[in-house]
């Protein structure tokens, strides 16, 4: 498999996790591409405008990338923090509409701000890695950390509180869970993850413009989670990897590839309404692995 495609898939998986975080406490937020765009603009502006970030050699310095990711994530997080309180008073489809509006506002801002390069965007972004393999390794580490944090949520008080809100917000509030605060944390965490991913993606894509943060992108990232399953972090990761790879892997079928891709998106939720990864399938998989280990054990001397 080609490393450049693998990198696209990993970025898809990170974005899927960003959509998954608010969904984990029952909040349908479509704002991920907006924050992704913001993170990318931070990286693009810094690395093309500040000599220290661009470096002098063939590749731009790695610490600069880390600073950009931190700044991109922070800016996205700050925006989420500022608008989170009022927006998260909304629920369900109303929250979704409000976040679509947010994506649209950010898009029009990015098109018209004097320093974001208009519709042409920013191009000639320097490369921190000479080969796509470098990006893949770096992104794998990032994804592993994100997955580990999501895994920790399963046992942490915060994660449990999120699950309680998803199941029944009223009940969760009545047992003393600070529901507005928990929802805000999930929303901000989602924005930070999207911002960090954007900062990395801007380098990888060489150029950055307002089209990365469009309504279409909102739907695509949501499809990752719907396809993969929203109950456990492995679902969105699988969904993001699979749905980013599929259009490319289907190239041999020629003109039919987008029709087939559409068919897969359609059939996925039809046959797996809860997504590919569900609690039952996880338990089944766990039991299978457990049995495998159980059988092996007696063989050991």
């Amino acid at each position: 498999m080609d490393a450049a495609l693998l990198e696209q898939m990993l970025l898809g998986a990170l974005l899927a996790l960003s959509v998954y975080l608010p969904l984990r406490c029952g909040q349908l937020s479509l704002a991920t591409p907006g924050f992704y765009a913001v993170g990318g603009y931070v990286a693009a502006l810094l690395s093309t405008g500040v000599p220290a970030f661009a470096g002098t050699g063939a590749t731009s310095p790695l610490p600069a990338l880390l600073v950009e990711m931190a700044l991109g994530g922070s800016l996205a997080g700050l925006i989420a923090l500022a608008i989170g309180r009022p927006v998260l008073r909304l629920r369900g489809i109303y929250l979704a509409i409000a976040t679509i509006a947010l994506v649209e506002i950010l898009r029009v801002l990015n098109l018209n701000l004097p320093f974001t390069g208009g519709a042409m965007g920013i191009f000639g972004i320097p490369q921190p890695f000479a080969h796509p393999e470098g990006y893949v390794l770096f992104t794998l580490v990032l994804l592993a950390v994100a997955c580990w944090l999501c895994q920790r949520l399963e046992v942490l008080r915060l994660g449990r509180a999120m699950l309680a809100i998803r199941d029944d917000e009223l009940a969760a509030a009545s047992v003393g869970i600070d529901t507005p605060r928990t929802k805000l944390i999930a929303f901000v965490a989602s924005a930070v993850l999207a911002g960090v991913t954007g900062a990395l993606a801007a380098h990888f894509l060489n150029a950055w413009n307002a089209r990365v943060g469009s309504f279409d992108a909102s739907i695509t990232t949501l499809a990752f989670v719907v396809f993969g399953g929203s109950r456990f972090w492995l679902g969105p990761v699988l969904g993001g990897l699979a749905l980013t790879a599929l259009p490319e892997l289907l190239r041999p079928v020629g003109d039919l590839r987008l029709i087939l891709f559409g068919g897969v998106i359609l059939l996925g939720p039809l046959f797996f309404p809860q997504g590919l990864v569900t609690a039952e399938r996880l338990r089944w998989l766990g039991a299978l692995l457990g049995r495998g280990r159980g059988r092996r054990k007696p063989l050991a001397p």
């Binding site: 893949v136 390794l137 994804l143 997955c147 895994q151 990897l241 996880l282 766990g286 457990g290």
Partner: peptide, 21 residues
């Protein structure tokens, strides 16, 4: 326990992608 195992599945998947890369 299940999640512990899954963590290993996840790590396995990541290693696989790493090898492919």
């Amino acid at each position: 326990m299940i999640f512990g195992r899954l963590q290993r599945v996840g790590t396995g998947l990541l290693t696989l992608t790493l090898l492919l890369a």
